[in-house]
Simulated scan of single mutants.
Amino acid sequence: MPNTAPDGDLYVSPIHLAGSTFTGDPALAPLLGHGFALHDDELANVYVNSPQQHIRLGYLPEGPDNTLWKVAVHADAFGPPHWMAAFDSATPTELVTAFTTVLANSYAEGPDSYLAGMSHPIDEALRPLTQAGWKRTDSWAATVCTAPDQLAGLTYSRHLRDPQAELHDDTHRWLLWGGRDSYHSRWYATFTSRTPIHLIAATTVRLADPTPVLRYAPEVPARNRGAARITPVTPPVPTPLDVRRASAALAHTTIPRAVVRAPSVATTPGPGATLPVRALRRR
C-alpha cells in the first residue's frame, strides 16, 4: 500500500503500527468510574489518584520527557512506589486503556490484586503473543517475543542488578515496543518487576488482538503506513428507506432545492472500533 494514507478516518491493523490518538479520555475513564479524583495543572497535564492515594496516574502531554502516561502504585501512600508502568506518547491508546481497565478492576478487588507482582507465572503475559504467532526466544539473559512482521516486540529481562533501581533509572524488567525504528514511529511501554502479571497480560492480550482500530489519518505514523493494513472508512450505501426519507424531507422543505442535501447516513465502525474522543488531545 502506498505510504501516503488517505484523508479522514481509517481502520488500521495491526495495532502496533496504528500510533496513538493522543487522547486521554478512554484510558482515564475506567479509573474515574471507580471513584478516582482528577486534577490538572496550568499546562493541561492531568493527574488521577485513588481515594487512599495508593494508585496514581499521570497523563502528561506537557511533561518533561516523551512519556505520556505514568502509573505509580504504592503499598504505603507515603512510601516509594511498589511498582511503576509507563507508556510513551506514540503508544496506541487502546493498550493503555486495556491496562487501566484491569487496574481499575484490581483496585475494586483490593490491595492483594494490585500489589501482588509475581503471583502468576510470566507465561500468562507471554501466551497471548505466542498464540497470535509471535516468535519466542529464551536465553539466560532474557525472554524475547517478536511479532511476525518484526515490527513489535516484548523483552523480559531475567537479570537486573537491583529491582529498586528500576524506579529511578531506565532499567526495566519488562519492555514492550512497536513500530518502525524512528523517533515519531516507534513506541515503548515499560513495567517494573513488581507489576502484577495480570496487568501486563491485559496489555499483551490487546496487543495481540487483530481487530483493526480506528484512526484519523494524521495519527498513523508516516513510516508505519507502508507496513500497516489500512482501510478508509466509507459511508454505507443508502437503503431504499433512506432514499424515501430523504425525498420526503425535500418535498416538505421550504428551502430552495438547489441548496438542499439529503441527510447523511451515520457510519458504523467495524468490530472493536470506537470513534476516538478528541478531548485532552496532545498538542
Rank of each mutant, 00 (worst) to 15 (best):
residue 90 A to L: 07
residue 125 A to E: 01
residue 119 S to N: 14
residue 68 L to S: 05
residue 64 P to M: 13
residue 34 H to M: 11
residue 100 T to M: 14
residue 133 G to A: 02
residue 65 D to G: 10
residue 74 H to C: 11
residue 32 L to A: 04
residue 29 A to C: 00
residue 35 G to E: 08
residue 66 N to Y: 13
residue 126 L to G: 06
residue 166 E to M: 10
residue 163 P to E: 06
residue 131 Q to L: 03
residue 93 T to M: 07
residue 116 A to M: 14
residue 23 T to N: 08
residue 113 S to G: 09
residue 78 F to R: 11
residue 130 T to M: 09
residue 49 N to G: 06
residue 97 T to E: 15
residue 46 V to T: 01
residue 38 L to R: 15
residue 167 L to I: 00
residue 169 D to M: 10
residue 79 G to F: 00
residue 134 W to S: 09
residue 163 P to V: 12
residue 23 T to S: 14
residue 50 S to L: 12
residue 168 H to R: 09
residue 73 V to T: 15
residue 30 P to K: 12
residue 123 D to N: 12
residue 55 I to L: 11
residue 89 S to G: 03
residue 46 V to W: 03
residue 73 V to C: 14
residue 122 I to N: 02
residue 101 T to D: 05
residue 84 M to Y: 04
residue 36 F to P: 01
residue 74 H to E: 09
residue 84 M to E: 13
residue 137 T to E: 14
residue 74 H to G: 12
residue 93 T to W: 10
residue 128 P to V: 05
residue 60 L to T: 04
residue 155 T to H: 12
residue 74 H to T: 11
residue 38 L to I: 13
residue 106 S to C: 15
residue 50 S to C: 10
residue 112 D to P: 08
residue 70 K to A: 12
residue 156 Y to W: 08
residue 136 R to T: 04
residue 84 M to F: 11
residue 124 E to K: 04
residue 124 E to V: 02
residue 154 L to S: 10
residue 96 V to L: 10
residue 52 Q to C: 04
residue 70 K to M: 09
residue 37 A to C: 05
residue 95 L to A: 05
residue 163 P to N: 10
residue 51 P to L: 00
residue 57 L to E: 06
residue 61 P to H: 05
residue 106 S to I: 04
residue 105 N to E: 15
residue 97 T to C: 04
residue 166 E to P: 07
residue 77 A to W: 13
residue 109 E to C: 05
residue 23 T to D: 12
residue 37 A to K: 02
residue 81 P to E: 05
residue 26 P to A: 05
residue 55 I to H: 11
residue 22 F to D: 08
residue 124 E to W: 00
residue 146 T to N: 04
residue 68 L to R: 08
residue 168 H to F: 08
residue 50 S to H: 10
residue 53 Q to E: 12
residue 91 T to W: 01
residue 132 A to R: 00
residue 35 G to N: 01
residue 92 P to T: 08
residue 147 A to N: 09
residue 97 T to R: 13
residue 143 T to S: 05
residue 51 P to V: 02
residue 133 G to K: 00
residue 143 T to M: 06
residue 72 A to W: 03
residue 132 A to M: 03
residue 144 V to A: 11
residue 98 A to N: 09
residue 91 T to E: 02
residue 133 G to Y: 02
residue 111 P to A: 07
residue 95 L to W: 06
residue 78 F to D: 12
residue 157 S to V: 08
residue 58 G to V: 13
residue 110 G to E: 11
residue 169 D to G: 15
residue 39 H to M: 13
residue 48 V to C: 07
residue 146 T to L: 08
residue 141 A to I: 02
residue 131 Q to W: 00
residue 33 G to V: 01
residue 163 P to F: 10
residue 84 M to G: 06
residue 37 A to L: 09
residue 50 S to T: 02
residue 85 A to H: 01
residue 106 S to T: 14
residue 130 T to F: 00
residue 93 T to S: 15
residue 168 H to Y: 10
residue 96 V to K: 06
residue 24 G to D: 02
residue 45 N to R: 08
